[in-house]
């Protein structure tokens, strides 16, 4: 009989001390995904005073079902992997804050991080590892009906639409994977694609086309999501000929990519066209003493193991920076 003991669950609360506004940390890490958590382990092992500001621990990993390309685990689910990351960080007794959002950051000898709730934290060096969030359509009805038929993650919400008609917006890999997941359980899947062709991998396109209950509407955009208490239908418009239609559906999965959580850095750190924080190979940003790692940066590939590696680099760079200054 196997026992899947999560020892981390039982670490006493004193291990996670609250983040202190009165303290000037050596390094403050913004973000609790694989990049941020790896950076935390590296900083704590170096013995520099470290704090971490986490919005949702694990970031995108916590919402991933099956992971098969993180070394050491042939197959592991996202929540389990996040638990293991958390256990490894908790053992160091780091100062920790959870749930808040970052409003702005200020450079100088001492960097200041202001949260949306008004609290300000200080550190000699910062590591920005705030990752990415799902891109929104920004059409009427989207916000109001989020959680009531509007969803962004089939892993999380797919099962609620068993036997129902659903729409998937997006023809890239995320959209195709969502369509495939849903085709197995939904009554029908309509893929709404902005362009005149699907942009995902051939293997996924072929797999999706194997399902009889999936149809694709090309050169089509969503104009509104309709329903009073839940999604009832979705209005679409053909971009080529202007034809409009209303598709009855109980669910709409928006899979049009991810945006970097770098809004607070705009005009302050150098960003690329996609809004990602630009870094060199030592994870340095355009501001001395501010480092960045993971999906929020312009690292060309976004993978858990890459984010972890970048987090380690950023931590070592930040520690070098702090130790050289003192």
């Amino acid at each position: 009989m196997e026992f899947n003991l999560s020892a981390g669950m039982f670490s006493s609360e004193e291990k996670f001390s609250p983040l202190d506004t009165a303290k000037t940390y050596d390094v403050l890490i913004l973000g609790g995904g694989p990049a941020g958590l790896t950076a935390a382990v590296y900083c704590m092992r170096k013995g520099v005073s470290t704090g971490i500001i986490v919005k949702e621990i694990g970031g995108q990993v916590a919402l991933t079902a099956g992971i098969e390309n993180y070394m050491g685990y042939r197959h592991i689910n996202g929540v389990e992997l996040v638990d293991k990351f958390r256990e490894q960080v908790v053992q160091f007794g780091i100062d920790y804050d959870e749930g808040a959002s970052i409003a702005s950051i200020e450079a100088g000898e001492v960097k200041r991080v202001k949260l949306e709730d008004g609290r300000v934290f200080s550190a000699r060096a910062l590591i920005v590892a705030t990752g990415k969030s799902w891109r929104k359509l920004e059409v009427p009805g989207e916000e109001e009906l989020t959680g009531l038929g509007v969803a962004y993650c089939t892993t999380c919400d797919g099962p609620f639409y068993t036997g129902k008609d659903v729409i998937v917006v997006g023809g890239g890999n995320s959209g195709l994977e969502a369509a495939i997941d849903l085709a197995r359980i939904a009554s029908s899947v309509t893929v709404v694609q902005f362009l005149d062709r699907l942009t995902g991998d051939r293997i996924l396109i072929d797999k999706m086309k194997g399902f009889e209950n999936v149809r694709v509407l090309y050169e089509t955009e969503v104009t509104s999501i309709n329903g009073s208490e839940e999604v009832e239908s979705v209005s679409v418009r053909n971009r080529k000929n202007g034809a409009v239609d209303e598709i009855h559906a109980k669910g709409i999965f928006i899979e049009i990519g991810l945006v970097p959580n770098s809004g607070f850095a705009k005009g302050f750190l150098k960003l690329n066209e996609a809004g990602e924080i630009m870094v060199d190979c030592a994870c340095r940003t355009s501001v001395p003493g501010i480092f960045a790692a993971g999906d929020v940066t312009d690292v060309p590939f976004k993978q858990i193991i890459i984010a972890g590696g970048e987090g380690a680099k950023a931590a070592l760079s930040a520690c070098n920076y702090v130790l050289q200054k003192s």
Partner: peptide, 11 residues
């Protein structure tokens, strides 16, 4: 209480 349930039991 095997598998993951060991955690609920200890808890």
């Amino acid at each position: 209480p095997g598998g993951y349930e060991i955690n609920s039991f200890i808890g």
